[in-house]
Design a protein around this nucleic acid. Structure first.
Lengths: 158, 158
DNA sequence: GGTTAAGGATTAGCTTGCTAACTAAAGAGA
DNA sequence: TCTCTTTAGTTAGCAAGCTAATCCTTAACC
């Protein structure tokens, strides 16, 4: 097995990013499994903790996920008792999302699950590296948000 | 919408990583769509170009994916004519994966799709940043590989 | 040699992401 | 006012990741 890894050329930055991202997802899944959450759901709850009553579109924009993904995941979270969803009385197009009591009870555990990952990152990267990493990721994030989202807008216009 | 983003606390490093990773996947998907490939399939083909005839287990180890994921994705790729799969005559437990002629024809396009992403990254990050980013990602990659995989092994032992 | 353990792949069933196509509500303009 | 466009969500259907459980082959051990 090791022979093989040596055979491989150095992965490109993009390949590395893709790989790390998948591993991050699995790591978070392991952390959250103990409280019965899936990895995307933790992020959603942590957003809602600061903005209870967001609309699905606002959630989607903040997390860079598309409307159908939001609908699906939120439907499962409602089914599992983490949130309530109801139409905005003033604008019936909007579906607003509210934390359930159960979600509020787990607020601290959810916050901690993120905190743990960050502490682990702290233990393997020094302050300087973390700073650069964050700056780079933000640049890449901005760039990708622009191009990927722009691409979709182009499609719509085309 | 912008008000909302300002409201949010700075995302943690882990959250940033998770977000960028998803965007990378979408970005690569857009690049590969023109040749009828899905984003995970490009990575697999580019591995096979350097190691035709790998077993599924070797592929899975190299890409950090689990056996069922390998089976599923490779079945789809065989269905779509990118690869052939056949049992190793010497050890019937192994399934070896071979590039089809179609895949070989597209070799250059696949290589280019990775190259383009890297060039885009080059345009937004300077050499120093790329170096640090790569180093950090490799550290994180190694750490996550160890912990996430170790966790699975622990489960098996438990 | 025969039984048991380990290894590799598969199946079933889940979450999460996507696009395309659709519904329904709100807003705009003639 | 009535039509038409835009906006927000939903549904259907796919790819890709996962775990748990199963199957078959090989290796190991008595």
């Amino acid at each position: 097995m090791e022979k093989l890894t040596e055979n491989l050329q150095e992965p490109t930055l993009g390949q590395l990013l893709a790989q790390v991202s998948r591993l991050i997802g699995r790591h978070r899944q392991l952390k959250l499994a103990s409280i019965g959450l899936h990895h995307a759901q933790g992020m959603i709850l942590s957003l809602l903790c600061r903005n209870d009553g967001m609309s699905q579109m606002e959630l989607g924009h903040a997390l860079h996920i598309r409307p159908p993904t939001a609908t699906n995941t939120l439907q499962r979270m409602e089914r599992d008792g983490w949130i309530m969803r109801q139409r905005d009385p003033a604008d019936h197009r909007l579906v607003r999302v509210y934390l359930s009591d159960k979600a509020k009870d787990f607020h601290e555990e959810i916050r901690l699950s993120f905190h743990e990952l960050d502490q682990e990152l702290n233990s393997i990267l020094d302050a300087q590296e973390r700073e650069t990493l964050r700056a780079c990721l933000e640049k890449v994030n901005d760039y990708l948000t622009a191009t990927v989202v722009k691409h979709v807008v182009d499609e719509e216009i085309r």
